[in-house]
């Protein structure tokens, strides 16, 4: 549903510009405002100054990979609950589990499917028991 996540700000992290742009387009289509970073270090830099609602990150990147980024983010008290979605070409179960263990909240495999992104954002931003 276009524009359904109006008002949310996302950070897209991928060293490969093509995939990153694709993700950015999908997210913008869903109404999110999107910031970009080319690796984990850049992402941390962005997070220092910007408040974002959700992160999408690739795994294999130079400088700092997606797993390391998850670990670094979870070390920052304010970002302990920041939703992180790992986006990767790996469909190997071990990678997925490793992502979840290092602090990711969900996992999307490439090529990215727009409706899966929608589903993942929806579930991740919903709390089990709605605030009264």
């Amino acid at each position: 549903m276009p524009g359904m996540f109006e008002g949310l700000k996302a950070l897209a992290v991928d060293d490969y510009e093509n995939t990153r742009k694709k993700l950015v387009v999908i997210l913008q289509h869903l109404g999110l405002q999107v910031l970009e970073a080319a690796n984990g270090l850049e992402a941390l830099e962005v997070l220092r100054t910007e408040k974002v609602d959700i992160i999408f990150t690739d795994i294999v990147m130079p400088e700092m990979d997606g797993f390391e980024l998850c670990i670094e983010i979870r070390k920052i008290p304010e970002l302990r609950t920041l939703p992180i979605v790992v986006v990767s070409t790996h469909v190997d179960g071990n990678y997925i589990i490793k992502g979840l263990r290092t602090g990711a909240d969900d996992y999307i495999s490439k090529p990215i499917e727009p409706d899966l992104v929608e589903r993942v954002i929806a579930r991740i931003t919903t709390t089990v028991i709605p605030p009264a």
Binding site: V91, G93, I96, I97, L100, D105, D106, Y107, I108, S109, E113, D115, L116, R119, R123, T127, V128, I129
Partner: peptide, 20 residues
């Protein structure tokens, strides 16, 4: 599980239960 592996979704569901 749709377009995701079933075990992943099961892990996510598991996590939801731990939240409450």
């Amino acid at each position: 599980a749709g377009k995701q592996p079933a075990f992943l979704v099961a892990c996510l569901i598991y996590k939801r239960f731990t939240e409450i």
